[in-house]
């Protein structure tokens, strides 16, 4: 009795939620990758990369990913090679001591939009656009939060005083964000007939960025399934063996 009462009290305690920030809580979305057997939608991944490539990549780097990693979203080696070759990569120095540049190859990391942090800040009114490789893992409720930010721009209410070069977004801490609303209807042309609106762009790019932060998710879940399946049977067998070994022991 007593134990149960304490347990209940503790659970009631744990369920209380505390919010320190004045930002609104991102609405909960249904993502294909969230359930136990959930996988990434390959088409959404590729559309999401297209959105990143054509929109986000103007300011945001994706430093931890190499072009070759894009095989994971279903790109062929030829597509990857062509994508990589679009960019010039700095690779050491020439014999004359000048910076040596060559076209990118699949093994190169995705070329950043700015040469360094200072350049990135200088081009963005002093704000540093964060690297997106791990952005979903680096935010609480990552996919929901990111989707909320991308779709949460609005005209500021009258009482809100925006700072210089700031934009109203009710999901961002302090409700002001330096990033200008990045997505507009029709700005990216999808070839597969998917609607080209902000909502769809946001969903696709969030799917892509979730994959970018957790590319081994599918491998993890499928390995996990095999391991758990085997382990449950093994544990059952160990349980019966234990019972049998102990059958002669009486209290």
């Amino acid at each position: 009795m007593f134990k149960k009462a304490i347990l209940l009290m503790f659970l009631a305690f744990m369920s209380l939620q505390v919010f320190a920030s004045d930002a609104e809580h991102p609405p909960k979305m249904n993502w294909s990758f969230q359930s136990i057997f959930g996988t990434y939608d390959r088409a959404a991944l590729q559309r999401g990369f297209q959105v990143y490539h054509e929109v986000c990549a103007a300011c945001h780097s994706l430093n931890h990913l190499a072009y070759r990693h894009l095989a994971g979203i279903g790109f062929t080696p030829e597509t990857i090679k062509a994508l990589a070759a679009e960019k010039e990569i700095r690779d050491g120095f020439t014999e004359e001591g000048e910076i040596f540049k060559r076209p990118g190859i699949a093994a190169d990391h995705i070329a950043p939009p700015y040469i360094n942090e200072s350049a990135a800040k200088a081009a963005n009114n002093g704000s540093l656009p964060p690297d997106l490789s791990l952005i979903v893992k680096a935010r609480a409720h990552g996919p929901d939060y990111l989707h909320a930010i991308l779709t949460g721009y609005a005209e500021p209410p009258k009482e809100v005083q925006l700072g210089e070069n700031m934009h109203y977004n009710k999901y961002f801490a302090g409700r002001q964000i330096a990033m200008i609303a990045p997505l507009h209807e029709g700005m990216v042309n999808y070839t597969d007939g998917t609607p080209t609106n902000v909502e769809q762009y946001a969903k696709d790019v969030v799917t892509f960025l979730t994959w970018a932060g957790d590319p081994k998710m599918e491998e993890r879940k499928s390995t996990g399934f095999k391991v758990m399946f085997f382990l449950i049977i093994l544990t059952l067998f160990m349980f019966f063996t234990k019972r049998r070994v102990w059958r002669n022991i009486k209290d």
């Binding site: 136990i36 879940k221 996990g224 391991v227 758990m228 382990l231 544990t235 234990k242 102990w246």
Partner: peptide, 24 residues
Amino acid sequence: PYYTIKDFFGLGVFFLVFLSIVFY
């Protein structure tokens, strides 16, 4: 064999919990 098998069974249960966190 009494506590070796009992410990092994416990180990199985432990890994079920541990690995379900690792994988899921």
